[in-house]
Nucleic acid binder design. Sequence first.
DNA 1: AGTTGGCGAGAGCACCGCTCTCGGTTGAGA
DNA 2: TCTCAACCGAGAGCGGTGCTCTCGCCAACT
Lengths: 259, 259
Amino acid sequence: MQERCSRLLRLLSFCVTVGHMTVAGTARERARKEITAEILAAARAQLRQVGPGELSLRAVARDVGMVSSAVYRYYASRDELLTALLIAAYDELGEAAEAADDAIEDRTDHLARWMATCKATREWAIEHPHDYALLYGSPVPGYAAPQDTVMPATRVIVRLVEIIIGAHRSGSASATTTPPTGAADPGAVVADAIAYIAERSQTDLEAFPELVMRTLMVWSTIFGTLSFELFGHLKGSVNDFEGYFEQTTLRLAGDLGLA
Amino acid sequence: MQERCSRLLRLLSFCVTVGHMTVAGTARERARKEITAEILAAARAQLRQVGPGELSLRAVARDVGMVSSAVYRYYASRDELLTALLIAAYDELGEAAEAADDAIEDRTDHLARWMATCKATREWAIEHPHDYALLYGSPVPGYAAPQDTVMPATRVIVRLVEIIIGAHRSGSASATTTPPTGAADPGAVVADAIAYIAERSQTDLEAFPELVMRTLMVWSTIFGTLSFELFGHLKGSVNDFEGYFEQTTLRLAGDLGLA
DNA sequence: AGTTGGCGAGAGCACCGCTCTCGGTTGAGA
DNA sequence: TCTCAACCGAGAGCGGTGCTCTCGCCAACT
């Protein structure tokens, strides 16, 4: 109710002040964008309390002062709303991780950058458990992530790869570039990753197939650890979650050749 | 309908053949057990098709030929039914993993035992994706695993620990028992795990804190990798999932000192 | 100025988990 | 052997869900 009034007021004031200029599209288009964002914000707010499976389209409709059917003018289904939330959450996590890395002044201290990025990832996860579950928990049934989610979804791992490759290129990392004896060519199984990251980061990774393999493993370890912690699988095994995660990332850094 | 008849028939035949012997309790108690199991079986069957979040108590009631309210005589809530499914799935997975290990004839070939156990774990996960999501996906909202789930839940990891410790005790493993430089005492953060596994396996692990730490990490890697694969996070990065998983477990074995 | 299309409201459908009541049956004790 | 309490299944019902459809209203374009 209140929302509706404020929305109408905003729309009205826009019409008055801007008139026929239509800077960013017509008033209707602008209102549509605003309301779309408003719904998304309400959904994010609800996600802070209830978890992705329980997110109710009717409830977010009530929050923004609409009847449930009206929301379908903006999101074709609950899944589409969840996808929008997915992208927003991925971006927020990527933003947090990148910011933590950027905050390290000595850009050649790759270990510090690594530890900071990992730490920020965990902190975001702890602070947004429902968002985390949306990103890395069981996907909603029959739900296949659309293509436009892969870019935000890979921000963290791409940054981690950049740190690791940077360390190896600058020579400040010990060599872990040889696969174990008896192993097949790692480059074969992770060829897609090599190609994708090379394109995203504008770096040639053909020389580091083992390193890419190891990085994927480490990526799995980080999110496996966080999932275990958040989903309760470490209860009774780990005393100090923060300390455990730090020790984990420290060993992972060692496995990757970061001093 | 059909189910109801068969259930009544079974009950009837029991009365006729056994009479007053009451070997395993009264006929009513026996029928109760059977119907409870029947509901669980129907739920498992439904879980093969729809995923834990969509498992409908009403639908399983229909499958066993009951009205929905009748199911509540056997399971107090949907969550309680899910808990029963949880335990059953954990046991099935543990069974599969242990069987794969047991099948290795040369009990001193710890690497082979390791690889076989890991491989079996993945195969079970691939064959039972919805059960896997129930076990290792996002927990249902506000759901806290009851105490009687921890025993079946830890069968795989306990077996893995036994293999690793066995290798190190027999001297057929290289030493990875020293923490990296600058790391705090690993024994502090994983003290609970050491105590729990020691009790379960009747082995003293006080001498191997770093090994326990590493084993927990490896555990996270395995299930992180499987979650990534099953939940679609490796799409576009990994070409050959089976090969990737095998290469992963091979490197993990190396990290643990298994030759 | 008239028409088109977007929009919100409302009713409605089929489903869900869960509760309650009401008969019928069972089984243990008097 | 009879009685009565406990158990059990059926049914109705409550409040919730996602989603569809129709119906007016009003802005925007021709």
